[in-house]
Design a binder for these strands. Structure first.
Length: 866
RNA sequence: GCGGACGUGAUGGAAUUGGUAGACAUACCGGACUUAAAAUCCGGAGGCGUUAGCCGUGCGGGUUCGAGUCCCGCCGUCCGCACCA
C-alpha cells in the first residue's frame, strides 16, 4: 500500500474555509463557560509579517485552541498598532500617504496572518489609526485632564537644526541627525505629560501582586521606577571672592551619611544655576553646548566620559563652615533626577571617584570595614561601596564616627531637619510620561490653544479631531503645523480665533488600552464596562521582552487612570505575562564585510564559499533577523513551501519559548518530515478498519503504549498551560515513537493492540491539534470523526495507567550512582535499604567499608554513605 | 555608564525544581530497501578506557549524604535605557 504524501496547501485552504463558515473562533456570548482572554501584542503594520510574528502568534494560538478545547469561552482578538514614524518615513522617501501605506500594509499582513490558520475573532479587528478608535482615546484624554492626570510643561527634545525637526533618540546617531548629519541640539518645548509619577508607589507596590509575570520583568520595572529614600538639603553658596550667593544649592542624596567625605558638588548642564552662570562664563557655555550635542538619550549621556567645568562657586559644608566644596557643572548629573544637583563623595561612589581623580579632588573615606584600623584605610581606583549592617562603621566623620551607616543617616537627617536646611525625601527615578510628538501620523491631541482661555479641551461632541488628508511630506517638520487651514479654529470657550494643538500622541498611548477596547470594539464609549468586567484582565499576554518596561508600565498606569475616570474597574491589565525570545538566523559576510544571504553560502572542503562566485565567506553568529544583515526568512515563502502547520510546529519545537530560537533549514525540514510521518501513521491505523468495543483487558504491549500516550496527554496539557511548548512537542514525539514501535509491519496486530493504537492516534492528533490545526482537522476526519477537532473537547487521561506497580530506584554510594534497584512502589524503607545494600554494584563500591548511613528518598533515590 | 538575563554532547535543548545529566529533536555514522539517488525503515552515539571504572553542565572556590540546580568570586554572550515599535 502506498500513501500519497500530505499536501498542505489545498488542505489548509479547505479547513480555513470550514472554520470561516462555522464562524468557529467568534468569542462566545454565553456566560455558561468561563471566559479566557489570550492576547499577543498586536503588530505594527510595517509591510509583511516576519518570523517573530509567526512565533508570537503561534504561541498565543496554541493556548487559545487548547483553552477552547478545555471548555473556555475564549477571546482571542487581533488588531493593528498603526500609528508611527515608519509611515511618515515612507511618505518622505516614496511620496505615498501614510494612511494609504498603512492600510495597504494591514491588508497584506491580515492575509498573511490568515494563512497561518490563527484562531482569531476577526470581527473585533481595528487599527489604532481608525478615527473610530482614536476618538475614544481623545475622549479619555479629556477626562484625564479633568481628573488632574495631565500636565503641560517645558521639556527637552532633540532638535535637528538643518531639517528643522524634532528627532527621536533612534534618529540621533553619534550625536548627529540621521538624515541631515548635522549635530543635534537640545531644545525646550512645551509638551503634554501624563502624571504617571503620581502612581509611582502604587505601580511599585502592585508588582508584588503580579505573581504570573516573569520575575525579571518585575525586577526591571522595580529598578525603572527606582524608589529611593534619601535627603534633600541646601548648601549655602559663595562665589570665588567669598561673597554669599542667594538661594544656595539644593541637592538630593541617598548617602547623607557620607557628608564628611564630600569633596565637591556637581550640577547638571541644564541646571538653572548653570544656565545663569553660562552668560558670563564662556567655558561653561561651551560645556553646555557639548552636553546638548549628546541629545536626550540617557544612555549617550551616561556613556560619555566623565567631564565637568568649575562654575566658580563654592558650597559651604553644612557641618564644617570652614570647608568649601567647589561646584562643578558635570555631564553625568541628570537634570531629570532628584534636584539636578549632587554632592560628590568620591570614596564611596564610582562616578564621583572617577571625577575626583580626573580633577585632582580629595578622596576621604568615611565608611570602613569595622575590623580595620581607620588610619590605614584608603581608597584607590575603586570606590568602597559596602554599607550594610555591623560589618562597616563611620570614620573621619566628626560626630558620626563609629556609627553604622544607618545610624549616621538618621543622625544627619535629625540634625538637618532640626536646623531646617533639609528634609528626608522619597525620590523616584521614574519621570512623568511626555506624550507630545511633533508628527503627523498619530492621534491628534484634542486641545485648542486660545490667547485668553489658554489650553481648552475640544468639546466631546466635536470629537473625533481627525487628521487632515491633504498634507505634504516634501519638507521636514510637522505637516499639521504647516497645513494652511487645519489648525485655525474658534475657541470653544470664548469663540475667539484660536489654534489647534498640532502635536499628536505618543503611540504608546494607542497601545496602552487596546486590550480593553477588544472587549467591546464597537461600543460608543471607550470601553463597555460589562464586557470589560467579563474579560479583563487579560489572562495571558504574550510578547517580546523589549516591551518589558515601557509598554507594560504605561498600560498599567493607563488602566489606573481609566479606573479613576470611570472607564475601567481594575488596576492591573495583564494577569499573566509571557515574554518570548527573538527569531535569529546565521549570518554570512564576504571579506569586504558585505553581508550575504545564507541561501548563497555553501560548504566546500570545509570552507564556506559563495554558491555562484566561489568567494570565501565567513560564518558569523546567529543574529536577530534583519534586512541589513540579509538573514531574513520570509514566512510567506515558508508557508507556501511547507504549509503553515509545519512552520508553526517548527517554531514551537526544541527551543524554550522565552529564549531566542535559531531558524535552520534542517529544523523546518525535520518538522515537515514529522508531519509526513504522522500522516503515514494515521493511514496505517485507519487501515485496520473501523473501531471495535474497548477490550476488557489489554496485553503488555498495548498497556505499555497506552501508558506512554496517557502520560504524554497529562504532560502536554500541563506544558501548554505553562507555555512550555518545546516540552509538549517532545512528549508528542514520544507518543508517536511508541505508536510506531507498537505497530508491526508485516503481522496483523492483536485486537487489543489495534484498539490501543486507534486510541493513541486519536490522542496524538488531539494533542497536536493546537499546534498544527489544519493537519489535525484532516486526520480527525480520516479517523472517522464528523465534528471539527476545533470543536472537540480535550481528552481525559486515565490516572490508573500512570501509576506503576514497580519502580526503578537509582542507588548511589557516597553520591555516585553505582546500581539500580527494581522494587515495589510501596516497599517499606527498611526493605529498600536491605535490597540496596545487597546489590552487586553497591557491594563492589563499598569494598568492605562499613556503612555509616543509608538515605532513602521515597520514589527518588537511595544513597549509601560509607 | 546603569539595569536585566543567559552559558549543559557536534547543534537546539531535557532534567519531576537539591535526587540516575544528556529525554526529544537536528546533524553525523552504520545497516536494510534501490541500478543509483531521494524518501522511508532499523541500529549506534558525551569524552577516555577491552571490562571494572575515571572524567564531564563556561572558569575558580564553598554549602550538602547528594549540586546543572543553592551561595561567593571571575569570564563570555545577549537585551533595555524614557521620541523605534
Amino acid at each position: 500500500m502506498s500513501i500519497e504524501r500530505y499536501n498542505a496547501g489545498p488542505v489548509e485552504t479547505r479547513w480555513q474555509a470550514a472554520w470561516n463558515e462555522r464562524d468557529a473562533f467568534a468569542t462566545p456570548d454565553d456566560n455558561s463557560r468561563p471566559p479566557y482572554y489570550v492576547l499577543e501584542m498586536f503588530p505594527y503594520p510595517s509591510g509583511n509579517i516576519h518570523m517573530g510574528h509567526v512565533r508570537n502568534y503561534t504561541m498565543g494560538d496554541v493556548l487559545a485552541r487548547y483553552k477552547r478545547a478545555k471548555g473556555f469561552a475564549v477571546l482571542h482578538p487581533m488588531g493593528w498598532d498603526a500609528f508611527g514614524m515608519p509611515a511618515e518615513n515612507a511618505a518622505m522617501d516614496r511620496g505615498v500617504h501614510p494612511a494609504k501605506w498603512t492600510y495597504a500594509n494591514i491588508d497584506t499582513m491580515r492575509r498573511q496572518l490568515k494563512a497561518m490558520g490563527l484562531s482569531l475573532d476577526w470581527s473585533r479587528e481595528f487599527a489604532t489609526c481608525d478615527p473610530s478608535y482614536y476618538r475614544h482615546e481623545q475622549e479619555m484624554f479629556i477626562d484625564f485632564m479633568a481628573a488632574g492626570l495631565v500636565d503641560r510643561r517645558v521639556s527637552m527634545v532633540n532638535w535637528d537644526p538643518v531639517d528643522h525637526t524634532v528627532l527621536a533618540n533612534e534618529q540621533v546617531i553619534d550625536g548627529k541627525g540621521w538624515r541631515s548629519g548635522a549635530p543635534v541640539e537640545k531644545r525646550e518645548l512645551a509638551q503634554w505629560f501624563m502624571r504617571i509619577t503620581d502612581y509611582a508607589q502604587d505601580l511599585l507596590d502592585a508588582l508584588d501582586t503580579l505573581e504570573n509575570w516573569p520575575e525579571k520583568v518585575r525586577l526591571m520595572q522595580r529598578n525603572w521606577i527606582g524608589r529611593s529614600e534619601g535627603m534633600r538639603f541646601t548648601f549655602d553658596l559663595v562665589d570665588d571672592k567669598g561673597r554669599a550667593v542667594e538661594d544656595g544649592l539644593t541637592v538630593y542624596t541617598t548617602r547623607h551619611d557620607t557628608i564628611f567625605g564630600a569633596s565637591f558638588c556637581a550640577i547638571a548642564a541644564d541646571h538653572p544655576l548653570a544656565r545663569q552662570l553660562a552668560d558670563t562664563n564662556p567655558a561653561l557655555a561651551k560645556f553646555r553646548r557639548e552636553v546638548a550635542a549628546l541629545g536626550t538619550s540617557e544612555e549617550a549621556i551616561e556613556r560619555a566620559e566623565k567631564h565637568g567645568v568649575p562654575t566658580g562657586l563654592y558650597a559651604i559644608h553644612p557641618f564644617r563652615p570652614d570647608v568649601r566644596l567647589p561646584v562643578y557643572a558635570a555631564n553625568f548629573v541628570l537634570m531629570g533626577y532628584g534636584e539636578g544637583a549632587i554632592f560628590g563623595c568620591p570614596a564611596h561612589d564610582q562616578r564621583d571617584l572617577d571625577f575626583a581623580r580626573k580633577y585632582g579632588l580629595s578622596v576621604t573615606p568615611v565608611v570602613a570595614p569595622a575590623n580595620v584600623d581607620p588610619s590605614g584605610f584608603s581608597v584607590g581606583d575603586e570606590a568602597y561601596l559596602e554599607k550594610d549592617g555591623t560589618a562597616v562603621r563611620m570614620i573621619n566623620s566628626d560626630f558620626l564616627d563609629s556609627l553604622s551607616v544607618e545610624e549616621a543617616k538618621d543622625e544627619i537627617a535629625r540634625r538637618m531637619e532640626a536646623s531646617g536646611i533639609g528634609e528626608r525625601r522619597v525620590n523616584f527615578r521614574l519621570r512623568d510620561w511626555g506624550v507630545s510628538r511633533q508628527r503627523y501620523w498619530g492621534c491628534p491631541i484634542p486641545v485648542i490653544h486660545c490667547q485668553t482661555c489658554g489650553a481648552v479641551p475640544v468639546p466631546k461632541q466635536d470629537l473625533p479631531v481627525t487628521l487632515p488628508d491633504d498634507v505634504t511630506f516634501d519638507q521636514p517638520g510637522n505637516p499639521l503645523d504647516r497645513h494652511p487651514t487645519w489648525k485655525h479654529v474658534d475657541c470653544p470657550s470664548c469663540g475667539a480665533k484660536a489654534l489647534r494643538e498640532t502635536d499628536t500622541f505618543d503611540t504608546f498611548i494607542d497601545s496602552s488600552w487596546y486590550f480593553a477596547r477588544f472587549c467591546s470594539p464597537h461600543a460608543d464609549t471607550p470601553v463597555d464596562l460589562a464586557a470589560a468586567d467579563r474579560f479583563l484582565p487579560v489572562d495571558q499576554y504574550i510578547g517580546g521582552i523589549e516591551h518589558a518596561i515601557l509598554h507594560l508600565l504605561y498600560s498599567r498606569f493607563f488602566m489606573r487612570a481609566m479606573k479613576k475616570t470611570g472607564h475601567a474597574n481594575i488596576d492591573e491589565p495583564f494577569a499573566s505575562l509571557f515574554t518570548q525570545g527573538m527569531v535569529i538566523h546565521e549570518t554570512f559576510r564576504k571579506k569586504s564585510g558585505e553581508w550575504v544571504e545564507p541561501g548563497y553560502a555553501v560548504q566546500r572542503d570545509g570552507e564556506w564559499v559563495h554558491k555562484d562566485s566561489g568567494e570565501a565567506l565567513t560564518l558569523g553568529p546567529a543574529e536577530k533577523m534583519s534586512k541589513s544583515k540579509k538573514n531574513v526568512v520570509d514566512p510567506e515563502a515558508i508557508i507556501a513551501q511547507y504549509g503553515a502547520d509545519t512552520a508553526r510546529w517548527f517554531m514551537l519545537s526544541d527551543t524554550p519559548p522565552e529564549r531566542d530560537i535559531e531558524w535552520t533549514e534542517s529544523g523546518i525540514d525535520g518538522a515537515w518530515r514529522f508531519v509526513q510521518r504522522l500522516w503515514r501513521l494515521v493511514h496505517q491505523v485507519t487501515g485496520f478498519g473501523a473501531g471495535d468495543e474497548k477490550p476488557a483487558a489489554f496485553g503488555q504491549e498495548a498497556t505499555e503504549l497506552r501508558r506512554v500516550v496517557h502520560k504524554a496527554l497529562r504532560n502536554v496539557g500541563e506544558d501548554i498551560e505553562k507555555l512550555r511548548f518545546n516540552r509538549a512537542i517532545a512528549h508528542i514525539y514520544e507518543s508517536a515513537n511508541a505508536l510506531s514501535a507498537a505497530l508491526p509491519d508485516k503481522v496483523a496486530p492483536a485486537p487489543d493492540l489495534i484498539w490501543a493504537a486507534r486510541e493513541a492516534t486519536a490522542m496524538i492528533i488531539q494533542m497536536a491539534a493546537p499546534m498544527m490545526p489544519h493537519f489535525a482537522e484532516e486526520c480527525w476526519r480520516l479517523l472517522g470523526n464528523e465534528e471539527l477537532v476545533a470543536f472537540t473537547a480535550w481528552p481525559d487521561y486515565d490516572q490508573a495507567l500512570l501509576v506503576e506497580d514497580t519502580i526503578l530506584l537509582p542507588v548511589q554510594v557516597n553520591g555516585k550512582k553505582r546500581d539500580e534497584l527494581v522494587i515495589a512502589r510501596d516497599a517499606a524503607t527498611g526493605e529498600i535499604e536491605k535490597a540496596a545494600l545487597a546489590l552487586d554494584g553497591v557491594v563492589r563500591a563499598l569494598a568492605g567499608s562499613p556503612v555509616r548511613k543509608v538515605i532513602v528518598v521515597p520514589g527518588r533515590i537511595v544513597n549509601v554513605v560509607a
